Simulated assay, not measured.
Amino acid sequence: MRFLHDTLPQRVRFATGDAAGQLSAEISEAGFERPMVIAADNEKELAVRVTEGLPVAVWHDEVIMHVPADVAARARSVARAHHADVLISIGGGSTTGLAKAIALATGVPIIAVPTTYAGSEATDVWGLTENSAKSTGTDRRVLPRTVVYDAALTLTLPVGMSVASGLNALAHCIDAMWAPRADPINATLAGEGARALNSGLPRIVADPTDLGGREQALQGAYLSAVAFASAGSGLHHKICHVLGGMFDLPHAQTHAVVLPHVLAFNAPAAPEAARRIAAAFDAPSAAAGLASLYTALEAPTALRDHGMPESGIEPAAAAVLAAAPSGNPRQLTSANLNALLRAAWEGEPPR
């Protein structure tokens, strides 16, 4: 056994029902005096509650999916103009992504308060979109110094979005099994993350007010993101980054649709990863376990339902082939990527 594993330095405060208290304590302990609060307009009421009593220097609500470069530039200008000494992101992956874009250029630290299961809060991965292309990279400056998890903040997340967001987290688990820096530590974290999501997400569908289920989903989202941050982006994430940048598709739903197809594609060539995934689902095979979960969740299945044009299949396959990481368990070709994307576009059963 021989591998190199990086563990990212980060504090996690997990306290259901006490996000405001945990955030206040973190700000006080660190001595921050000019927080910039980043929250989309539809999260403003929640953000006001969570930040009550804090010396907020400026509020910023221009949050757009996939973090367009011009949106990031305006947010950086706001941070500089108000001399922000900490960024408080309250929301999902797009909100955290915008905070990361600011931190990447300014070095201002981030405290993340997630309201979805995106997992971006636990990674040092940033992404920016410009001219229909999404660029991503890693930088320690964008890793939030602290994450405040409060399952009560996810209660207003609709069931459909909870499902898509949770499956986005599950994609981190599965991709971490065969990503460029996959190792036994990542695989263990990813396996436990998948186990928690497989348990928590059906509970949320059965009862959206089930805080225990939402706590399990948050736990799974965190474990999956930590595994992904260390293992790197595998085939699944390269596909979704290409699709999101080219067609401005909804992030979570795109991940949810693509995941079963990548699993079916790679699993036969990665038997140990497939065994771990099957064990996490307590299923006879990885594909059977994922299919059972998707049926229980009534998960999204077709890219065409989310705005991808049929004419985009071939150019997307070419872009994925150019961006795909080396070392994928199965050899990639233009033909098999076209077949994978067409099946995902049409909503066919994974092959």
Rank of each mutant, 00 (worst) to 15 (best):
T154M: 13
T154S: 13
T156L: 10
T156W: 03
T156Q: 06
T156N: 07
P158I: 07
P158R: 09
P158K: 06
V159P: 00
G160K: 15
G160L: 04
M161T: 08
M161H: 09
V163N: 07
S165T: 10
S165A: 14
L167C: 03
L167Q: 07
N168K: 14
N168F: 08
A169T: 02
A169R: 08
A169L: 10
L170D: 00
A171S: 15
C173K: 09
D175H: 10
D175N: 06
D175G: 11
D175A: 14
A176V: 00
M177C: 12
W178Q: 07
P180K: 05
P180G: 07
A182T: 14
P184T: 05
P184K: 04
I185V: 15
N186P: 14
N186G: 15
N186D: 14
N186T: 15
T188H: 15
L189M: 15
L189N: 15
A190Y: 09
A190H: 13
G191D: 09
G191W: 00
G191M: 09
E192Y: 14
E192N: 15
G193P: 07
A194Q: 12
R195G: 08
R195H: 14
A196E: 01
S199D: 12
S199I: 11
G200C: 12
G200I: 06
L201A: 03
P202W: 01
I204N: 08
A206F: 02
A206L: 06
D207P: 06
P208I: 12
T209R: 12
T209E: 12
T209S: 14
D210I: 09
G212E: 02
G212M: 00
G212Q: 02
G213L: 08
R214T: 09
Q216A: 15
A217K: 08
L218T: 00
Q219N: 13
G220M: 11
G220V: 05
G220N: 11
A221N: 05
Y222I: 04
Y222C: 13
Y222L: 15
A225I: 01
V226C: 11
F228L: 10
F228Y: 11
A229K: 03
A231E: 04
G232A: 02
G232F: 07
G232M: 06
S233W: 01
G234C: 09
G234F: 03
